[in-house]
Design a protein around this nucleic acid. Structure first.
Lengths: 133, 133, 133, 133
DNA sequence: GTGGTCTAGACCACG
DNA sequence: GTGGTCTAGACCACA
């Protein structure tokens, strides 16, 4: 059973939280190729959000090529495909790192402090992912 | 001479791109305390955006206390002040770290890889700082 | 129900009038943590200004950490946080006091009279706070 | 000899600083009715500002009725006239007090603290005025 | 329906 | 010349 946890009031839009959690579920093996996703309406009811929001998340997953829709039957995990090259993935992460280091430096943090904070967030995330298993 | 590069059609709004690039320039020492920023309308003409967009970016920099405006004279890099409490500064950095680690993990990077990338960006900033002295 | 009164043609810009009245409403308890603010376009229509002007005022309130925005849902009074250092908070209050005492002196008021007027406004705010509980 | 002290980099525009200091000089007797003011160009040279700025300040003083210009001879202190009623003067001060108390309350200051800060600024202003005599 | 961004262009304040 | 404010109106993102 796929469990999605929504944090309202976060900076991350709800549809994106859904997208990321489905992707994470696939990445960690909770969902395998061919497995069905919950129906839009069922998931919307379960996590208490507008069904448009769930539909949007699923649309995004399809666009990213990791989910397929079969007309009238529902949504299914697609065959895994590598979409981004290593260079592209590195670029995407660096785009987020650049503003972070500027901001941190201006706020008076040292490199070591920032690294410690990143590491902490990383372990926190890993921990919460394991809690979902 | 401060050069700002804008990518239109990006998911990052123009005014944020300006903010981040000015912040980076200050953080790495390309701009020092007291240095003038390009005038609102001059920069707007140079990067071909509306002057309100530049004004919005500069206003953001003022809120963060890193630049000052003087009516009729222009914008200048402000003296560094301790504006925010430790808790607030930590919160601000974590707000940027959270999406970073989550995105990096989805793209298949390990914690070590992310830490290495962050460290690299940090050193790059420090290095360009010394180059400007 | 929050009612905002705008004086056009004043030397105080419209967006600042909005900021100050929302701030006053929160300070005196007319708006409590979690309460929604009027929607940007609804308030703009009500006080007959451009919606950008209201948006600018609300953005200012966000910078000060006293309201939050949630995409697609609206603006809400934020939980109180200690954002600014003691020095910064003192600086901000003094920035408002300085023109006040200078103007009051030019208008012929003594220090005692000004203190009495400040105290009166303070009690008025506290009183209306209790009236709202 | 009238001495004007300009603080550049303040929130208060230069022309306003001139206006207020001339008004203060008249109020405290340093300038009497009929006394000449420094010429626009002389004062501009002395305090190192644009002569348009001085001209603007003098225009404001004329508008307020406390200075007169005699074509070709210069500017002179006019016969003192009461311009604002007591109610109007009180209103003007209260307009500045209201935002102050809201801001101070939201920043976590008590009424006593604010009163102390106002008193301090008042004495500081009086002290610096006496220093000019 | 909400908020967020951007443009074009106007008018005012300051130096 | 500089910055500051405001309008009218467009288009996008989110729920």
């Amino acid at each position: 059973m796929l469990s999605i946890q929504i944090t309202t009031g976060s900076d991350v839009p709800i549809f994106r939280q859904i997208v990321e959690q489905v992707r994470a579920a696939i990445a960690c093996g909770k969902l395998s190729v061919g497995d069905p996703l919950p129906s839009v309406r069922a998931l919307a009811a379960e996590i208490v959000v507008n069904h448009n929001t769930v539909a949007k998340a699923y649309a995004q997953l399809i666009r990213d090529g990791i989910v397929e829709s079969h007309q009238g039957r529902g949504y299914f995990v697609a065959e895994r495909r590598e979409i981004f090259t290593k260079a592209e993935r590195t670029r995407r992460v660096n785009v987020m790192i650049q503003p972070l280091v500027s901001e941190a430096a201006l706020l008076g943090f040292s490199g070591e402090e920032v690294l410690a904070m990143v590491e902490k967030q990383f372990s926190k995330m890993v921990a919460s992912n394991q809690g979902n298993r």
